[in-house]
Computed example of a mutant assay.
Amino acid sequence: MRSDRVRSVLYLPASNARAIEKARTLDCDVAVLDLEDAVAPEAKADARDAAVAAVRDGGFGPRLGVRINGLDTDWGLDDLAAMKAAGATLVVAPKVETPEAVHALSAGLAKGCALWAMIETPRALMALADIATSDGALDGLMLGVNDLAKALGTGASPDREPFKPWLAMLVAAARANGLLAIDGVFNRIDDAEGLAAEALQGRLYGFDGKSLIHPSQIAAANAAFSPSEAEIADARAIVAAFDAPDAEGRGAIRVNGAMVERLHLEQAKALLARAD
């Protein structure tokens, strides 16, 4: 599993100067300046210039990324070229549907720039395994729930029942290829209880973090995707038990009334590393 901290990935419109300035101080793990859905067509060029300036100026506490427009739009190729020239280290690409799209995007990035592919169409779901195994700069998969719901024609569900197969599939594709897995957004900004529940569901499915649309959602995502005190205590107990002299050479031992194996020891060490 990747060690990157991406518990909270906050989208901010690149056309909003105040939002960009605020992003420098926020407690999210990743701030993504959006050139796509959050920006009107007539503001695309100005938003691109603002994103370039932000990348070059730096000063962000969170890791900084930029979501470009699709390469099949009037702005995508210019966005990609601008991010390469600016030295962006993370580019988020919308509606990636094929490995060929990953190759085209990767070819336009600066060396060392990571690419996150948004999975948000039925065609992308059907090609997910091929997309995840693409050569290039691909570093993460993100679930685009709003576009996907529209395309699939799914109804509203508090526990995301229609999405459960795709949640599991995206995580499996990411894990099989050493990629990050980022859960989709939660639209109801004033529903703190619903957000907390969905973030915990995302962690249960194996996601590394959650996409966010408002700064008020950061704390809930950081909490959900961070080890709890009970989990840390259990992990320490497992590590201590395997470090005991009588555990030497044993593949499975009893800890707190449960049988644990060496694979649980590896999981415990990974959890403690994330907790540091």
Score class of each variant (00 low, 15 high):
A31D: 04
D135W: 08
A176P: 06
L212W: 00
L167G: 00
N146S: 13
G140D: 01
G209T: 02
D246R: 12
F186P: 00
D183F: 03
V30R: 03
D74H: 15
A54P: 02
V9I: 14
F163H: 05
L271Y: 06
E248I: 12
A88L: 04
A19M: 11
N177C: 10
P41M: 12
L80R: 06
E100G: 15
W166G: 01
P158N: 14
A124I: 05
V9M: 13
A273T: 10
A127S: 13
L105A: 10
A224E: 04
D49R: 15
L115G: 06
A50H: 03
P165N: 10
C113V: 14
N146F: 10
G249E: 13
G257P: 06
S226R: 07
G61Y: 03
A93C: 14
A117C: 14
L71K: 03
N146W: 08
Q201E: 11
A237D: 07
D139W: 08
G136D: 05
D183G: 01
A247F: 02
H264W: 13
E193L: 12
S106G: 14
Q201N: 09
A23K: 04
D57W: 01
G61V: 13
A50C: 10
T98Y: 09
L90V: 11
D243Y: 12
S134Q: 02
E248N: 14
P13T: 09
L109R: 02
L200S: 10
V239K: 08
D4K: 11
G76K: 01
L138Q: 02
E21H: 07
P215Q: 11
I131V: 10
D29F: 02
G140K: 00
G153A: 03
G194V: 06
P41F: 14
K111I: 11
S106W: 08
L128T: 04
A104W: 13
G87F: 10
S228E: 09
F186K: 00
A31L: 04
A101K: 08
P62T: 04
E36M: 08
S157H: 14
G87I: 09
A230S: 12
E266M: 11
